[in-house]
Nucleic acid binder design. Structure first.
Lengths: 208, 208
DNA sequence: GTTTAAACCAATGGTTTCAA
DNA sequence: ATTTAACCCAATGGTTATAA
């Protein structure tokens, strides 16, 4: 179904003179860490020793494929079948040679991937805006929280329902911070509604 | 919705002269363990220091109500919301005074409750039969496995699908042994099918 | 012996620390 | 600023060993 890049390295071809991200175990056998992410627009190739956000989101798709593999094996063996990306899936990914996938990284950016899934237009706009302003990845990551909360508002701030509504997102645990933000926002909205019903109309009245 | 027995003790009124299961902290403060289960038919009152199977199944309903409470509280607080009867639910039950509920016991009889949910007629027939033969609870419990596997056969031996198909059952983890039995049975069926296709007709032919 | 339930265990989700 | 192995932690699902 999906096209798979063959082995350890799936970086785009770069233009820098020194060794690229790619190459696997070829010459130097020296690559130790992934290149840092930079804020890129969709389709944009990250130059230099950097990775773009398309690559980040692709890692989530890869994890999904690994989960599907793990599920298939579990069903064959009649064992318990995970519904989420668990430690077991991360271990499987490592064993399959995907050393560039690890739990802390994937958990770190889950809410960014969520925005990408839930509101692609908003996600793209945010990427363009932060790229233009030359913001770093950390700033972009922080900025991804609120748009997801806005999406959640339409679900009564039930962030679990939001995640479950999307098949590619439902396999990821809801990050604690995102859950807390939704809770706070719901409380605020409830307080605002109560206050307006005191100062003005009740729930059945227009207050202007 | 459901009628709740008021406090710690929900035993039926007994006829024995010595102290009954019930009474809570009344006089002796001496009750340490639940009375053992005996095989009873539906509606039958267990005499003596025994509990009947209606009571066993009622404990599962109680756990479900405790789960619903825990879920309600979690949603209010914006915390993670369990979908199954977890350690947290057992702890909540204890804290709510239901000392007679504990994890090992509930896990021990899950497949018996499953049969009760999935095929009440078969469950009742089995209870009557084992009561008649004066079998002990352990023997009845063992005998509950196979009828559940038979139900699972109709779901391609996918026991998770079986549990999930029933709202009261879906909140319980599938016991490992039951999962293994279904796996073995599926393998046997597959082997039989393969063998019959060698000796006789293929899947599209009648082999008799 | 049978049955109950406390106690235990490895592995989990989640996070922090720290080196590169 | 960013990555990620390593670590820690409480709490989990699951089971065993014990007690009654």
């Amino acid at each position: 179904n999906m096209v798979w890049m063959d082995d350890v390295d799936d970086d785009d071809e770069g233009e820098e003179d020194d060794d690229q991200n790619g190459g696997g175990g070829g010459g130097g056998n020296e690559r130790q860490r992934e290149h840092p992410f930079i804020v890129t627009e969709p389709g944009e190739v990250a130059r230099g020793k950097k990775n773009g956000l398309d690559y980040l989101f692709y890692l989530y798709e890869q994890c999904r494929e690994f989960l599907i593999q793990v599920q298939k094996i579990a069903k064959e063996r009649g064992e318990k079948c995970p519904t989420k990306v668990t430690n077991q899936v991360f271990r499987y990914a490592k064993a399959a040679g995907a050393n560039y996938i690890n739990k802390p990284k994937m958990r770190h950016y889950v809410h960014c991937y969520a925005l990408h899934c839930l509101d692609e237009a908003a996600s793209i706009a945010l990427r363009r805006s932060f790229k233009e302003r030359r913001e770093n990845v950390g700033a972009w990551r922080q900025a991804c929280y609120n748009p997801v909360v806005v999406v959640a508002a339409a679900y009564g701030w039930d962030i679990d329902a939001v995640f479950n509504s999307h098949p590619r997102l439902s396999i990821w645990y809801v990050p604690t911070k995102l859950r807390q933000l939704c809770h706070v926002e719901r409380s605020n909205a409830a307080a605002a509604a109560a206050s307006s019903s005191v100062t003005g109309g009740g729930p059945d009245h227009l207050s202007f």
